[in-house]
């Protein structure tokens, strides 16, 4: 250890403590307590100031009136189309699901003109009856 040689003591450690093997001097409590109290006071003061400011401007913390509406925010994040495909599997599944839905069930295409859509299975049966000559 260098302390035994030329008096180059470790910074902050006095020779007595080193000789005994533990610190003889206690921590100075006063400044610590003062700093802690000061922090608490500062916190209180800032709450009060914030309260005063909010009250004077007529707003509350829960107020969201100045937020962007979700759709606008979305549009700002997503660049305008045509965009790169994000997930080809999901898009593909969607197209298949849409087409499958189109081929299932009865419903009106144009009620005025009397045009309907019918399930593909039924259409296949009807084509067997009617032939393939077309309309």
């Amino acid at each position: 250890m260098s302390t035994t040689g030329h008096g180059h003591s470790e910074p902050g450690a006095d020779p007595e403590s080193i000789a005994v093997g533990h610190e003889l001097k206690d921590a100075n409590v006063g400044p610590l307590v003062f700093a802690a109290l000061g922090l608490g006071v500062l916190l209180l003061v800032s709450f009060i100031v914030m309260g005063v400011v909010l009250r004077s401007t007529g707003n509350t913390l829960a107020d969201t009136s100045s937020d962007l509406p979700t759709t606008t925010a979305m549009q700002m994040q997503i660049p305008p189309s045509p965009r790169l495909q994000q997930n080809a599997v999901i898009d593909g599944n969607q197209i298949i699901a849409d087409a499958t839905k189109k081929l299932a069930g009865y419903g009106w295409v144009d009620q005025q003109a009397g045009i309907t859509h019918i399930p593909i299975e039924r259409a296949m049966e009807l084509v067997v009856e009617r032939g393939v000559a077309g309309k």
Binding site: V109, I115, T116, H117, I118, R122, V127, R130, V132, G134
Partner: peptide, 15 residues
């Protein structure tokens, strides 16, 4: 091509 006729009928059937 016969199935195409069925597709056409399924999406455009005269009620």
């Amino acid at each position: 091509v016969a199935y195409i006729r069925a597709l056409q009928l399924s999406q455009n059937a005269d009620v």
